Simulated assay, not measured.
Amino acid sequence: MHAAGALLWRLAGGHLEVLLVHRPGYDDWSWPKGKLHKHETLPAAAVREVREETGVEAVLGRPLPTVRYVLGGGTPKVCWYWAATPAAGIDHSTAVPTTPEEVDEARWVEAVQALEMLTRRADRAPLMALLELHADGTLATWPVLLVRHGRARRRSAWQGGEDTRPLTATGQNQARSLVPILSAYGAARILTSPWARCALTVTPYSEAAGVPVAVLEELTEDGARHAPDRARAVLESVLSLRQPATVVCTHRPVLPVALAALAARAPDPVAARLPAADPYLRTGEVLIAHIGRPVRRNPAKPGRKKPAVVAAELYRGRS
């Protein structure tokens, strides 16, 4: 059985606080979490469960350790967790559960106090990771969401220009099913190739979230073929400044350029998780690269460092 949830965190009075929930049916303190709905992705499930159990709209950050345990009857359960923050612009000073029969209290507590309050020992693992990231100053991150367009009509079957080749019905489904994934990470900016199959892939999210789309010729196949340095510069500009979560939608031939820019900012363990072989991403697939401040192990050398890719995840829109 698979479940998903999040460790919501905030800073209050200089202290790290997290949001715990009390479940009356089990009389325990735990993290907001729950089982996936049919066809639901892990990130979408995590955000939905947080909303249902605490009333808080969450924005996911970097992934945390999963928790594995055995339910009564011997059924194994795996719960996937993320660090998460309340959505900006909404008052979440208090949390009000929306399903009181399942969760009757949601309480912000200091993180060190949460270690004592958690009923299940295994639930401490993601919290310990959260505390370590906070101590390193690397807990706050922002994502770059690299998307390959949904499945398009075959070149051989399309009489129009390459820039007008549209999505198939499968590609349209993939585009629609990307909406809850991009929403889970708070995507607030969209950069895309102007070619139809890319523009159509980001349209459902743009319309659902009210996020404007910026089209860039550098992200087209022709643009990357004739001027790869310009395509890479687009990625570098996104990575260099802390800014709203950004979607970058492009084509398979552009992906090696984009991934090289990400790998150059990633420590070896993270770089090793980035796609390295053609086709790099499948149609309708999204790579979430979590960008943050690199760990500074030697305070005696305070030099300025560029933001780094500190974690990466892969998800695909449903066909």
Rank of each mutant, 00 (worst) to 15 (best):
W195N: 08
A196V: 11
A227H: 15
A245K: 10
L239N: 00
R225P: 06
A272D: 13
V202P: 10
E218Q: 14
R230A: 15
T170L: 13
R252N: 13
A208M: 06
R189I: 04
A175V: 09
L241A: 14
A199L: 14
V211L: 11
L262C: 09
T192G: 05
A169K: 11
T203L: 14
Q243F: 03
R197I: 04
V257F: 13
V179M: 00
L239V: 07
A264S: 05
P194S: 05
A187Y: 05
C198G: 05
A188H: 09
H226I: 10
R230C: 12
V254D: 01
P204M: 02
T220Q: 01
A245P: 12
T170S: 13
C249I: 12
P256S: 08
D229M: 10
L239G: 00
V234A: 09
G210S: 10
A263Q: 09
A224W: 01
A264P: 08
L255N: 07
W195V: 09
R265G: 00
N173A: 15
A169M: 05
R230Q: 15
T250L: 11
T220E: 06
I190D: 12
N173Y: 12
A263M: 04
P180L: 04
W195K: 01
A271M: 05
I181F: 03
C249V: 14
A199P: 11
D229C: 07
R252I: 04
C198S: 07
L167Y: 03
A272G: 00
G223D: 07
P194V: 01
A188M: 08
A264Y: 06
P269T: 00
L259P: 09
Q172P: 04
L182D: 10
A233M: 05
I190Y: 11
A261K: 00
A199I: 10
R189S: 14
A233W: 01
Q172F: 06
R242V: 01
